[in-house]
Design a protein around this nucleic acid. Structure first.
Lengths: 350, 350
DNA sequence: CTGAAAGCGCTTACAG
DNA sequence: CTGAAAGCGCTTACAG
């Protein structure tokens, strides 16, 4: 583990007895090189282990083939899936990734982060930090004058001019709630995520809409606020059975909280799903092995990440085109649809 | 989301009526600038939103202040924790991260990956891909002549000359097994991870050593091979009760498989922990809410990631020093210690 | 305390 | 099909 000087294009050119220009043509796979020259240079390149210095290349070309990705909470299910999708698609399309993690979604130094990404010459930025509180206020101000294209992922609360990719979280709430109702439930409780999260509010809205459309109550007594953790889900059920004695079903805003709810139900001696149906969100790997196996709503998170890269790639190309006089298209806002996964924690539709 | 040309050092210099050299001094915080000149330039920098082009800077300085990180399986617990640790420490020490994910640990294009990282001028590389099969064969050959320092994380199977940071996986097996024995177990089964993983083999070794030291049997009948998934854990227990009727405890090589084991135990009507004690590995967030709450072994994964960055930073500094005639120290191999977390799935020590 | 010159390793027009 | 020249945006000695 030490350092050895790497060969430069000049040395390769000298060894081949050609100009650096010709070597440049070879490493960029340009057609206009004599086959034998090409061959000879290729030979020397692999002998010397030469690979072009991306700094020099980036300096002349004005681009890095790198995407800046700002994310939060890799240790959580959603963010890690989104990032996987981003990385995979980026590799496929030919971008490297510069990763920046945020540890407090509400108080990140957004300006500084974006500036450092820009100075690192990224071609575009994916902002995959949850929409919490007003941590996206900056994006409303950020307009089309930003030095590089920016795309938001997950959370569509703001009025930003930037493009965004998200998952229809209201549909998540509706899917879960309607499934519970179709299984015969009449008193559907809700354990929310933190209410400063866009996702939590949307899921709650979906829950409320579904109940109201059937003329069923959706009062605050049916709601317990959680924080995404299993512990908060457990506390949530204790609170709900106090507030709403008729409770016969619970929609937990993620699988961890659903696990906590089931844990509490066991302790309370309420049989699942006969006495209490439970639905979660995320479809984490363990969900099918919970006791009982958890009915949940699956989100296309990897797809969202992949789509983000494709959209951003498009925006980057458009921006480069616009520089030559053409105009960029308006920023797209895309909402992906979730999917219900029925298992044993909810009563089946009769 | 569009493109606007960014100001250069030249423009800032012109606006300030100084040479680019002086501006350079200011952005690098060098002391030898007249206070008023400094102030004036600073002023113009913030007005114009100037930030230095890292490509140009990297080209002259020969370093990028970026770490190349190669990882696998972000959607799994271990890798995501390690990466979090890496990112956090890197940010603290002042490195950016270039992330590359591998999707098949056994058949990655290692050469290509390392070359692309090197050509992107990373200052060092952290290889955080699990030690599976012979996917680290390259690292045995890789010597001190590598263009940049490389550090391996997690899995210490090879005889590599490269530095490495890992967790003592044999200790994990011993910790779990000895805890089960101290609770009165005499027939401790094992559900392994995939046997081509170094971690799996080491955990099995720890299990075997602990049993043998007490003169207890550790036969193949007590072993079921899993693949880290809860499903394989469930299948594992069914297999074990067939092969070893006296079974009174199971060490599952991760928490997901432990969950599967408990799931199967419920179906078989075996009470946990009275009739069957279960211990997992990882201490995932859900573990304390499994039914019953899971006893498990906690690994200092984030610490491993953070330590990796510090070690690599040291190696980078040493390499730069060596270039000026000094020598690099030998590559360190560090093993971090795991910790038992006792909950309700195992019988307590009397 | 400040600047003129050279150079980092490439690519981009422009010639031929 | 190939090369000489200029330049990308910085920093590094070297002067003064």
């Amino acid at each position: 583990m030490s350092a050895r000087r790497r060969p430069t294009i000049k040395e390769v050119a000298a060894a081949a007895g050609v100009s650096t220009q010709t070597v440049s043509r070879v490493i960029n796979n340009r057609p206009d090189v004599a086959p034998e020259t090409f061959e000879r240079i290729q030979q020397i390149i692999s002998e010397t282990g030469y690979s072009p210095n991306m700094f020099a290349r980036g300096l002349t070309q004005g681009r890095s083939h790198t995407l800046g990705v700002v994310a939060y909470g890799l240790e959580y299910f959603g963010p890690s899936r989104v990032l996987t999708g981003i990385e995979q698609q980026a590799a496929a399309v030919g971008y490297a990734i510069s990763l920046n993690l945020i540890h407090e979604p509400e108080q990140a130094d957004v300006e500084g982060l974006l500036a450092s990404l820009v100075s690192r010459q990224v071609d575009g930025i994916i902002w995959a930090v949850p929409d919490v509180g007003d941590n996206r206020a900056w994006s409303n101000a950020a307009g089309s004058d930003h030095p590089v294209p920016v795309l938001l992922v997950g959370g569509m609360g703001g009025q930003s001019l930037l493009g965004s990719i998200g998952i229809d979280n209201r549909a998540i709430g509706r899917l879960a709630t309607e499934h519970l109702l179709s299984g015969g439930a009449r008193h559907v409780g809700l354990v929310t995520g933190p209410m400063d999260w866009w996702e939590s509010r949307e899921r709650q809205l979906g829950w409320r809409e579904s109940l109201q459309e059937r003329g069923l109550p959706a009062s605050d007594r049916q709601i317990a606020n959680g924080d995404w953790s299993a512990t908060s889900g457990e506390a949530g059920l204790y609170q709900l059975v106090e507030q709403a004695p008729d409770l016969d079903a619970v929609f937990a805003s993620n699988d961890q909280m659903a696990l906590g709810v089931m844990h509490a139900a066991h302790r309370l001696g309420r049989r699942i799903p006969d006495e209490l149906s439970v639905v979660g969100v995320d479809n984490i790997a363990e969900a099918s092995h919970f006791w009982p196996a958890l009915t949940t709503v699956d989100q296309p998170l990897r797809d969202a990440g992949g789509l983000a890269v494709r959209e951003l790639d498009g925006a980057i190309r458009r921006a480069r085109a616009a520089r030559r006089g053409q105009d960029g298209a308006p920023a797209p806002r895309t909402l992906l649809q979730p999917k219900l996964v029925i298992r044993e924690s909810s009563r089946p539709t009769p």
